[in-house]
């Protein structure tokens, strides 16, 4: 199963109808594929440092753009990347985060 292929229902920003936010949300969503690529790359390279950094950035930003679920999963991944080197657990959480990011991209 390839997790990078969009699947499931589109994930909409809570601020999709907020006029002052529309542009910013679009920008954030447009950058999603890049973030997904970076996450995959960090995982493939087994870089806990990069995973932590990327997850930390998403955690801080996602809720601001109206994607609190992405923020929560990113937070869990950050915690896991800091605490564990358990590849299976990390893979599950990267997959989960990537899936949410892809669903957000579908809304664009």
């Amino acid at each position: 199963m390839n997790h990078d292929q969009p699947g499931g229902t589109p994930l909409l920003s809570e601020f999709a109808d907020d006029p002052e936010m529309v542009e910013l949300v679009e920008l954030f969503v447009a950058e999603m594929p890049m973030k997904v690529t970076s996450l995959r790359k960090a995982f493939d390279e087994h870089s806990l440092t990069d995973l932590t950094r990327l997850a930390h950035q998403l955690k801080g930003a996602a809720a601001g753009y109206g994607f609190p679920t992405i923020g929560e999963v990113a937070s869990e991944l950050e915690g896991a990347a800091k605490a564990t080197e358990d590849v299976n657990r990390l893979r599950t959480q990267v997959d989960e985060l990537v899936e949410l990011c892809n669903r957000a991209s579908m809304a664009a």
């Binding site: 002052e20 936010m21 910013l24 920008l27 950035q57 801080g60 930003a61 601001g64 753009y65």
Partner: peptide, 13 residues
Amino acid sequence: SIDMHRLLSVRLR
């Protein structure tokens, strides 16, 4: 975080 700068400049506009 670049996102904080973007969000803040819109939210506190």
